[in-house]
């Protein structure tokens, strides 16, 4: 059944009928498995991978913020994460090993907006020791999809 996840992860628009054909399963089995994955939260959602740089009149700036925090009594890291996740500006929150604790991806309309958000909403949280904000300059590949330029199929019909 993991194969369904792998295929959907790469091609979320495959229909149940197509998935069933590819895996040699019954269409109903596929529908049931997917419903189960969705209800268990294994599949969290489906979304388009958009390269916003290519969209006209769309100002969107992204930053990766490294957070060092002091884990709180009772709540630990999870409580802090929950608090950060609640901000709509926040796209993703990951707990990290290594030099800092959380990697927080934030989007805004411009640099100032993000800087202001970090200064006023994140840095002010009790548990936050320090923040380092890295602005994203160019996206090459996102969620396994090449964004910068698609690779041309260089194959020709040189032989049958």
């Amino acid at each position: 059944m993991n194969k369904i996840l792998k295929l959907l992860n790469e091609n979320p628009r495959l229909t149940n009928d197509q998935l069933a054909a590819m895996l040699g399963l019954d269409e109903k089995e596929v529908a049931r498995a997917i419903a189960e994955y969705e209800s268990e939260g294994v599949i969290g959602g489906y979304r388009a991978i958009v390269d916003w740089d290519k969209v006209d009149d769309c100002d969107k700036v992204t930053a990766m913020i490294e957070l060092r925090v002091t884990p709180q009594r009772d709540k630990g890291f999870d409580g802090i994460a929950e608090e950060i996740c609640a901000f709509p500006e926040v796209e993703s929150v990951y707990l990290m090993s290594g030099g800092y604790d959380f990697n927080v991806c934030v989007t805004g309309r411009n640099f100032q907006e993000i800087a202001l958000f970090v200064a006023s909403r994140i840095s002010t949280l009790d548990c936050v020791q320090s923040t380092t904000t890295h602005f994203l300059l160019k996206r090459y590949k996102d969620s396994g999809i090449m964004l910068s330029e698609s690779e041309d199929d260089e194959r020709g019909n040189y032989t049958l």
Partner: peptide, 10 residues
Amino acid sequence: DMRRRLVVNG
């Protein structure tokens, strides 16, 4: 093999 099934089914 997966693509084969996909395209035959299609």
